[in-house]
């Protein structure tokens, strides 16, 4: 049985990075005693994967993961068993069974929405509008090999608004096209000759989407056939 689970991450655990979250979840599943599948081979490991890595310091109300089980378990029982052993700040909210042919959560992610609390109010509605009126928003980005490339952010910004002191942006996410919220912020500030200070902002991920006739939250999968 393959399931996709949705959970939130809040509080101090936001400072636990992606790799440590993998280890933490592996131990959590063991404690919960759920029938999680192990990979074959000399060094078997639990079969689960996160949809998208969440950066250190960022909270989220909608994280997703795919988990393979060796037998069927009712979703409410599964969620209850995991929640009982989850570390403080992690709460499993929902889940669906997915078909084995369903594209994995990780491979299907296309976009994510972030809410960025602006602690030092220097950003204005006009600044946002001005940025979005540009055709291209070039930034310099280091690739994995350390080479610096010019990179256009503009097509990766699907939507951005400033509302009640929060910047809410929906941006490209995933293996095909990935934009980090800091890149957008940094660019927005740079266009106004302001510099970016990480400590002035609090990042929160609101939703992660895949493309199912438009952007749909990852838990909305085709059921049945």
């Amino acid at each position: 049985m393959l399931v996709r689970l949705k959970f939130k991450k809040e509080g101090p655990i936001r400072f636990v990075g992606h790799l440590d979250m993998m280890r933490t979840f592996q131990k959590m599943f063991s404690r919960a005693g759920i029938p999680i599948a192990y990979s074959e081979g000399f060094n078997p490991h639990q079969v689960f994967s996160f949809a998208s890595a969440l950066a250190v310091g960022v909270t989220s109300e909608s994280e997703y993961m795919d988990v393979k089980l060796t037998k069927d378990v009712a979703m409410d029982i599964l969620l209850e068993a995991i929640n009982e052993k989850a570390p403080v700040g992690i709460v499993f909210l929902d889940g669906v069974e997915i078909m084995s042919k369903e594209t994995s959560a990780m491979a299907s992610v296309v976009a994510a929405t972030y809410k960025i609390e602006v602690l030092n109010p220097i950003i204005t509605v006009d600044m946002v509008a001005e940025m979005m009126s540009q055709d291209t928003l070039m930034i310099r980005k280091k690739n994995k090999k350390g080479k610096i490339n010019d990179f256009d952010l503009r097509p990766g910004i699907i939507n951005i608004v400033l509302k009640e002191g929060n910047l809410i942006m929906t941006i490209a996410n995933g293996s095909h096209f990935n934009v980090k919220p800091e890149m957008v912020l940094e660019k927005l500030l740079a266009l106004n000759d302001l510099s970016y200070e990480r400590g002035d902002y609090r990042f929160h991920r609101v939703e992660i989407y895949h493309d199912h006739n438009g952007l749909r939250p990852l838990l909305e999968v085709k059921l049945g056939s």
């Binding site: 509080g11 101090p12 655990i13 400072f15 636990v16 990075g17 440590d20 933490t24 131990k27 959590m28 404690r31 250190v56 310091g57 052993k85 570390p87 403080v88 700040g89 990480r198 400590g199």
Partner: peptide
């Protein structure tokens, strides 16, 4: 966010 391995300082472990 400035320091290496901030999870060293947050407590709250299982």
């Amino acid at each position: 966010l400035q320091v290496e391995k901030p999870a060293r300082y947050i407590g709250n472990e299982v």
